[in-house]
Amino acid sequence: MKTLFSLLLAVGLVAPVFADEVKVAVAANFSEPMKKIAADFEKDTGNKVAISSGATGAFYAQIRNGAPFEVFLAADDETPAKIEAEGLGVKGSRFTYAIGKLVLWSAKPGYVDAKGEILKKGGFEHLSLANPKTAPYGAAGVEVLKKLGLYDSLLPKIVQGENITQAQQFIASGNAELGFVALSQVWKDGVLTSGSAWIVPGSEYSPIRQDAILLTTAASKPAAEALLKYLKGDKARAVIKSYGYEF
């Protein structure tokens, strides 16, 4: 009997009573660090994490219409606040898990200079952004362009990705020479993973506070609460930091 049980356990047919699966909706820019954190969390607690990544606005629409997510890691602070106000999130569970940094990035080494002068010099066909209406990093990119007084002249060159990962993919495939993405997408352990970039100074755009919230679907689920607590812990923070986020 015991062997049969452990066999079933091994093939995943019977879950141990203490373990649970937490369904997490993650903003696209945070999906890489979240995968790492989730793996650590699974190892440390025995709970499982199911990650869906996408655009914050799309998740909001899905959560309002009954999507079964339990934890929401947004790319902004407005959406979680709205979710809490609408009674879809657990009151008092909201906190900032990371502050994002914007970067002007090109897949070509040496293409983007350290001060972003390339934006003024021009000579490119396409500048890629995430949809500024729905993606905070897209909105931050527009803010930077407006502050530099270049928005109107560069508007015909802007191509929009549905979310920040698609914006990056347009650049990575060479279809757009450069574009604004999240630092976390091109940054690992203090260095650029590829290409060239201008890390936009924080003074050029309003801070991208990324908030997390426990959704009411998980109100009585210890594993979901544990995951949120885990996000604030040293181990998770080290991972978050290694991707270039602040707190």
Binding site: A55, G57, Y60, A61, K133, T134, E162
Partner: peptide, 8 residues
Amino acid sequence: IFNHVEAM
């Protein structure tokens, strides 16, 4: 349509 839905 997709943009409008995402932007609520």
